[in-house]
Design a protein around this nucleic acid. Structure first.
Lengths: 144, 144
DNA sequence: ACTATAATGAGAATCGTTCCCATGATTATG
DNA sequence: CATAATCATGGGAACGATTCTCATTATAGT
């Protein structure tokens, strides 16, 4: 049982949600991924071990427990990734050709810069900023 | 005929795409909106004047001509807004409670900062950056 | 006007996702 | 350790958003 697993287990216990085999499989698959994954992608990775209807339900449950965060960068599909309290804050590189989404962390001083900027903008707009995402669209190495 | 209409007309002429009644109606509806709109929302606004199948085709055509930009901030639906070359570069404030998306422009020096940052990150990831979006999630004045 | 080409509109088809419900697993209780 | 009571599962039907198909109609260029 990895540290991640233990943290997730704890969180689910706190919420009175069971950490079953299927749910573990989904968390493991997302932990192994290097970016957000859609239900279809997860289904392909997991095979018959987690049937579609269970997979969707599991994703919804884990999102509700704030173990996963949904991500909407591509047309029509929702991708999920482990929440930032498990993996650390990061941004996304989104390929406009193949739709792949890759995580990138940025150096602390620059992240601080972004955070300051976000605060300023929100303040100017009478908005309470809670989170931010810098999404960079372009072409990945494979599609270049 | 507004200035916007003239610019769109020119762009479409350049691409050998006709600027028909239905297409004008869609552009006008988006011009009147203060943020991205989904096909369903546009359909409600336009009524029978633009049937669904035509509406979707029109959105695809206008996106292809780079008159519209798709936006994916909510589960399952694509919203469109006029492209930035028509309206100016801006970012989004997304309310996590009511889902509203509001446009915000940020001051030039800060925008330059963001752009520099984006270039650095992309370079580090062997990625060709074409565009970026700073999406700020939080609570709007109404939901605060 | 005539013709070639592009655009339209109605409905069928598709895709991602959610819902339903009977069955199976887990936990708390006697 | 049996037994409810509860929660989770899985198969398939249902759904909503979007795309496709194709016969019809509008448009631009001759």
């Amino acid at each position: 049982m990895t540290t991640l697993d233990r943290e997730v287990a704890q969180r689910l216990r706190d919420r009175d949600v069971r950490y079953t085999r299927g749910r573990r499989a989904v968390v493991a698959a997302l932990a192994a991924a290097d970016g957000p994954r859609s239900a279809a992608e997860l289904s392909a990775a997991l095979g018959a071990a987690v049937p579609v209807s269970s997979l969707y339900r599991t994703l919804a449950v884990l999102e509700g427990a704030e173990v996963l965060e949904p991500h909407f960068a591509a047309k029509g599909v929702t991708r999920y990734e482990l929440a930032e309290w498990l993996t650390g804050h990061h941004h996304h590189l989104i390929c406009i050709d193949c739709g792949a989404v890759e995580d990138v962390a940025i150096p602390q001083p620059q992240e601080a810069q972004v955070r300051r900027l976000v605060e300023d903008i929100a303040a100017a707009g009478a908005f309470t900023a809670l989170d931010h995402a810098l999404e960079i669209e372009g072409r990945c190495a494979r599609c270049a």
